[in-house]
Amino acid sequence: MSTLASLTRATLAKDLRLEWRSKDAINSMLFFSLLVVVIFSFSFDPTAEESRRIAGGLVWVAFLFAAVVALNQTWARELRNQVLDAYRVSPAPPNALFLAKVIGNFIFVTVLQALMTPLFIVFYNLRALGPAYQLPIVAALGTWALVVNGTFFAAMSLRTRSREIMLPLLLFPISIPALLAMVEATGAILTGEFSAKFWIVLLAAYDVVFTIASLFLFGFVLQAE
């Protein structure tokens, strides 16, 4: 367990250092999300009550597509110079690599959310009428659901010819229950019309199931040729 934890930390530190130096993922994510916020704000009346109802969907569409950009970048840097083979020939546990990638992507998407949320609030005139303290919980659980599945499927599509198209094709259908829960929970908190608790529990259960399944299967994905 201590090897797993220490290797996860070392791999995460390496990924954060690579991202800090290249800024590949965070720049494209920021640009994409900014584009969504601005374009959607032109299309809807930001002062209307309706914007509060649709904001949950808008926010998660922006974060979902931005996350896909980060997920593709995560493995792309392991393919350059075939560095992944250096990991595959080592005795290091595959799950350390997987967990480091998931945590790394979680950090990238969370940073993005922290930067974009004030813009969403301003552009869409948002104010939570429900319990606002639940919003960070939904954000954390929703982001984990996206990145845990996304990291797994991005690894699966790594050796396919058109992996950037393959990832959304694999990821979106399996993420539908999580996406539904994120959008409904966010909508419930913003409008205050109904309780978000059911959707939060559903998201948490989804996270647990898919984290365990991904950890169990990642070794096979990594060693597949």
Binding site: S6, L7, A10, T11, K14, R17, L18, R21, S22, R77, R80, N81, Q82, V83, D85, A86, Y87, S90, P91, A92
Partner: peptide, 19 residues
């Protein structure tokens, strides 16, 4: 099998951790 963005020493320090 090396990360282009890191120095040689940084690369090797990371790879030692795998072993």
């Amino acid at each position: 099998l090396l990360y282009d963005e890191m120095s040689g020493m940084e690369n090797l320090v990371y790879f030692t951790r795998l072993y």
